[in-house]
């Protein structure tokens, strides 16, 4: 109990510090409320959005999109990473392709996503997919290649006669902590990409809340969207860290 309190306290202090700095900027700059509303106004909008249930709708939509994209990414990226980690010949072919695509921001995919998938759900999921795919591939490859060779030998001499058994009983479990780290990082990058994804003709979602707030000059809504993304990001990461602990052996 004290442990979790000790871990959450810094976040609460950071939050209070940010709100304080925000209030001071508002007071000293005298910014117009449409440009930078005071924290209290943003809090009021936040409460209103909660009371009307609208905020939960946005959160649900965004989370659903990230979850869908992340699941698809995992289903493709884990096997790909496993193959790349095991076969250096396959890695030599696949790695340059991946390295060429990796620096391209999910934002850059927006036009093609619209052309290919239209303005429905699939285009948005595709953009988040781009953001979630690479961390999983790279961490899976690192995990497989990082397996201690002596564990592979131990597996072989303890009766893992064929490649498939060795893979299932030794390589996969040994690489698992890295793969889960990939899942964690990738959910984070996917979550950060909802803004990009929901720039594309969205009707709801936290990214939509922000984009829409900008259009109707409601910067309080923009700020609520940003704060919620930040807080939920931390919460999701915490969940992953707990999962990760189950996979760490040390």
């Amino acid at each position: 109990m004290t442990g979790s309190a000790a871990r959450t306290l810094p976040y609460i202090y950071a939050f209070m510090g940010i709100v304080l700095a925000w209030q001071m900027v508002v007071v000293f700059s005298g910014a117009h409320v449409a440009i930078l509303p005071p924290p209290l106004l943003a809090a009021k909008s936040f409460v209103e959005l909660i009371a009307s249930g609208e905020l939960f709708k946005h959160i649900g939509t965004s989370l659903g999109r990230v979850l869908a994209a992340w699941t698809i990414a995992a289903v493709i990226a884990v096997p790909l990473g496993l193959m790349m980690g095991r076969s250096s010949r396959f890695e030599r072919i696949a790695d340059p392709v991946i390295e060429l695509f990796r620096p391209i921001s999910p934002l850059a995919w927006i036009p093609l996503a619209i052309l290919w998938f239209g303005i429905g759900e699939s285009g948005k999921i595709f953009i988040i997919f781009v953001a979630t795919f690479f961390p999983i591939v790279l961490n899976t490859v690192a995990g497989v290649k990082g397996v201690d060779p002596v564990l592979i030998r131990a597996g072989q001499v303890l009766g893992c006669d064929d490649g498939a058994t060795l893979f299932r009983k030794v390589i996969l479990p040994a690489a698992m902590p890295n793969i889960v780290v990939g899942f964690r990082i990738s959910f984070g990058t996917g979550w950060a990409a909802i803004i990009a994804a929901e720039l594309v003709a969205a009707q709801s979602g936290l990214g939509y809340l922000i984009a829409d707030g900008m259009e109707i000059l409601r910067s309080d809504l923009v700020l609520v969207g940003m704060v919620v993304i930040g807080i939920l990001g931390v919460l999701i990461d915490t969940v992953f860290r707990i999962i990760l602990r189950a996979f760490s052996w040390t």
Partner: peptide, 8 residues
């Protein structure tokens, strides 16, 4: 160096 499986 023992070569025990750390996940088991």
């Amino acid at each position: 160096d023992y070569a025990l499986f750390p996940w088991l």
